[in-house]
């Protein structure tokens, strides 16, 4: 098996999120698809970004958390304060999606995928053909396929 084959085998089809979807709907579809994130597209099907587990947590928890650096000193009683942020479930995904421009075309190599997962904070990479999102590669799928391939070799 060539390295190119691993990348091809891990690609999967997945539903798309519209930039107008609410966080509630987006979270539902992510859980139903059993993937860590989904691609977000505009009304014409053009890729706008990614929304997934990390973005959902970021939306629910206060924005200053990422600038704190460390939160081991925060008591449990503050967890209750989060409940007042529950109304963010009605916000649109476009407000919180990761807009870092990361996508691949269908002849992506394993090396390119490895570079993306190592250097970018994404759990999936959308596959784009002729301007349309045709699938995704998840980091978990890539890891499993890579590990299985190496076990087979050894």
């Amino acid at each position: 098996m060539s390295p190119q084959t691993i990348a091809n085998t891990v690609r999967r089809e997945a539903p798309l999120l519209s930039h107008n979807d609410s966080l509630r709907d987006a979270a539902d579809r992510i859980m139903a698809a059993d993937v860590p994130a989904l691609a977000v597209v505009d009304d014409h099907g053009k890729l706008l970004g990614i929304f997934g587990e990390r973005e959902f947590i970021g939306a629910l928890f206060p924005g200053y958390l990422t600038t704190l650096g460390y939160a081991g000193f925060v008591p449990r009683s503050l967890d209750e304060v989060l409940e007042k942020r529950a109304d963010c479930l009605d916000d649109r995904v476009s407000k919180y999606m990761n807009t870092e421009h990361i996508d691949v075309d269908d002849d992506v190599s394993d090396t390119q995928l490895a570079e993306i997962f190592l250097h970018h904070r994404v759990l999936i990479v959308p596959v784009v053909e002729r301007g349309r999102v045709t699938g995704i590669v998840t980091r978990e799928d890539f890891f499993r396929a890579l590990a299985r391939h190496l076990f087979d070799l050894s």
């Binding site: 081991g72 925060v74 008591p75 503050l78 304060v81």
Partner: peptide, 14 residues
């Protein structure tokens, strides 16, 4: 007020 006092400042020393 109690919630602020519950913050464990010593644990902020990493």
């Amino acid at each position: 007020r109690e919630r602020v006092l519950e913050l464990d400042a010593r644990r902020s020393i990493e």
